Computed example of a mutant assay.
Amino acid sequence: MLKQIRIVLVNTTHPGNIGAAARAMKNMGLADLVLVDPKRFPDPEASARSSRADDILEQARVVSALEDAVADCQLVIGTSARQRHLSWPLISPRQMAALVKENTEQQAISVALVFGREDRGLMNEELALCHYHVHIPTEESFSSLNVAAAVQVLAYELRVASMNEREIMQAGASAESSVTAGLANQWQSDWDTPWADGDNMERFFDHLEQTLRDIEFYKPEHSAQLMPKLRRLYQRSRLDQTELNILRGILTATQKASRHRAD
């Protein structure tokens, strides 16, 4: 399970936070780190704060956009400290861990946990790339959480979820189990088709937008929220690759029919 999980840090300002996040990852058995347009990396301060997690920093990939970081991932979960204008499926850290465990036990999928900027978190456009948003329930009067601390909280929940009861007891942790049945029952125990990854989902959304423009259903100047709401609908549905191919086929047929009528 843990080998299938990627930690993504977006536009991190302070290199010390990158190092501290790498340390948190190594503490909990995570190793895949991707940095999206960091302000300073590599940097000696990142290495100093990593506390012997230098191997994670050395293997970390740097990309220019979040789309590149999650292109090959079939489940993307973004961290969100606040409610947004456009609501999205919101889960707790423990629900997140149960969800990841359920999905990784079914298929050899890649999972991305996305963490935003120190001062602003993730932008709405970035959160729209995620299937779920996870919120750490901090004290309301002091809710600001350091990005490395957020990584530590979620990484801990993932580690506990990956262990069996005997391992938890041996590690001195609580054997309490908190699996959310509502989330777990959304998927069959065996799924016969791979989930669609981020790259194919973005191609689909581009195709969907173009088709809706072609048939004059979507006019951005009149319906700015249409595409974000459709994105939320399809992301919440968790499309597999076959379902995505069917939808792309419908869109192609719709475009052909529209052109035929125009002729």
Rank of each mutant, 00 (worst) to 15 (best):
M1D: 08
L2T: 08
K3Q: 14
K3V: 01
K3Y: 13
Q4W: 01
T13M: 02
P15W: 09
I18K: 13
G19F: 12
A20N: 05
R23K: 15
A24Q: 12
M28K: 15
M28A: 15
L30N: 13
L33K: 09
V34G: 05
V34D: 00
L35F: 14
P38N: 14
P38G: 12
K39N: 00
R40P: 07
R40T: 06
R40I: 06
F41T: 14
D43H: 15
P44A: 02
S47L: 11
S50W: 03
S50H: 07
D55Q: 15
L57W: 00
E58S: 13
A60Q: 01
E67G: 14
D68Y: 14
A69P: 06
A69I: 07
A71Y: 04
D72I: 00
C73P: 04
C73V: 07
Q74N: 08
R84L: 04
R84M: 06
S87I: 10
P89I: 11
P93W: 02
Q95D: 00
Q95R: 07
L99V: 05
L99C: 01
V100A: 07
K101E: 00
T104F: 02
Q106D: 01
Q106K: 09
I109G: 01
A112C: 12
V114R: 11
F115W: 05
D119V: 11
D119E: 10
L122V: 11
L127I: 15
L129R: 13
C130Q: 01
C130S: 02
Y132T: 00
H133N: 07
H133G: 07
V134Y: 07
H135A: 03
I136N: 06
P137I: 04
T138M: 12
E139T: 11
E139A: 14
L145E: 00
N146R: 03
V147Q: 02
A149W: 04
A149Y: 05
A149V: 03
V151L: 09
V151A: 05
V151H: 09
Q152P: 08
L154D: 05
R159A: 13
R159C: 15
V160G: 01
A161H: 04
A161C: 06
S162F: 04
S162G: 01
N164W: 07
E165C: 10
R166Q: 12
Q170R: 06
G172T: 05
S174P: 04
S174R: 12
A175P: 02
E176R: 03
A184P: 02
N185T: 02
N185K: 10
D190Y: 04
D190S: 10
D192L: 00
D192V: 00
T193Q: 03
T193S: 09
P194N: 14
G198C: 11
D199C: 03
N200W: 07
E202K: 07
F205W: 01
E209S: 11
L212A: 14
D214H: 15
D214C: 13
I215P: 03
Y218T: 09
P220R: 12
Q225H: 13
P228A: 10
R231C: 01
E243D: 09
L244F: 15
N245A: 15
I246W: 14
G249T: 10
G249N: 15
A253N: 11
T254R: 09
R259P: 03
H260C: 00
A262I: 00
A262V: 00
